[in-house]
Design a protein around this nucleic acid. Structure first.
Lengths: 139, 139
DNA sequence: CGGTATCCGTGCGGATACTG
DNA sequence: CAGTATCCGCACGGATACCG
């Protein structure tokens, strides 16, 4: 496959072959349900502790939340601070890098907000109109 | 969970409760590996027939490609044109709506291109530095 | 060629139990 | 409270076979 849609001066060469793989790998990480929702939640509310986060991100299991957070931490998108207290208290927050990604993600959210109804309509039409489609436009 | 990160004037109200669900549903659709790669491919090369698309999107099975395309079609993001010839020939292309989404996705790709190395480094450090982390910075 | 139907492996992800 | 470990279902997705 080719690199991406708008590669002005990045790929093509061979030496940068792994560049594509890495990019795709990262994209596939980001393009994850929980990842996006977690980044989103942290973006909205700032630093949060684990349990808070868990009920902000509706429907996430603690397993998935942990996993997602670990990955985000590994990628340098969030920081994890373990307060040396008992019972444990762990706070998460976006790094600058994470926040810059958040901006992009917000772009998608906004897009969705704007085009939601349009898409809903399209779906509706598709779901039954279908048959008449190309062959016999009713008009 | 709350709506999203930057809701200026969309949710909160009750009547718009399903708005959130729909938005989230759509996001989860878009936040799909193949979906993104397909949109990307169509964005780069314009109208394409099925088989071409299949080998542009490296690694996609024909099942997943079909499924993905159907969904994109349903959402009004791509059009599907079946040429009335034999053997069959089916062309896909982005709708204006699809292209507007592509822009946002490109934003993410660009972001990735820019911050890739940063993330790679972060991963590397995380993968072994780890231990020394907070308690005893080596320096 | 484009697509559907079927079979089937596997890994994602939820639920539960347990630890520090 | 935060996290790990374990078990396990199930749906995601690949491979194959077949149709128009």
């Amino acid at each position: 496959m080719d690199t991406n849609c708008c590669d002005g001066a990045s790929a093509h060469d061979n030496p940068q072959k792994r560049t594509d793989d890495l990019a795709r790998n990262i994209i596939e990480q980001i393009a994850d349900k929980w990842t996006i929702l977690v980044i989103d939640a942290l973006g909205t509310h700032g630093e949060m502790r684990f349990s808070r986060l868990r009920d902000m991100v509706e429907g996430v299991s603690q397993k998935m939340l942990t996993k997602t957070l670990r990955q985000l931490e590994r990628d340098g998108l969030v920081t994890r601070y373990v307060h040396p207290v008992i019972p444990p208290r762990v706070d998460y927050q976006l790094t600058p890098l994470g926040r810059s990604l958040l901006d992009k993600i917000c772009g998608i959210w906004d897009w969705v907000e704007v085009h939601m109804s349009e898409m809903e309509k399209a779906r509706h039409e598709f779901d039954h109109g279908e048959k008449a489609a190309r062959s016999s436009a009713s008009a």
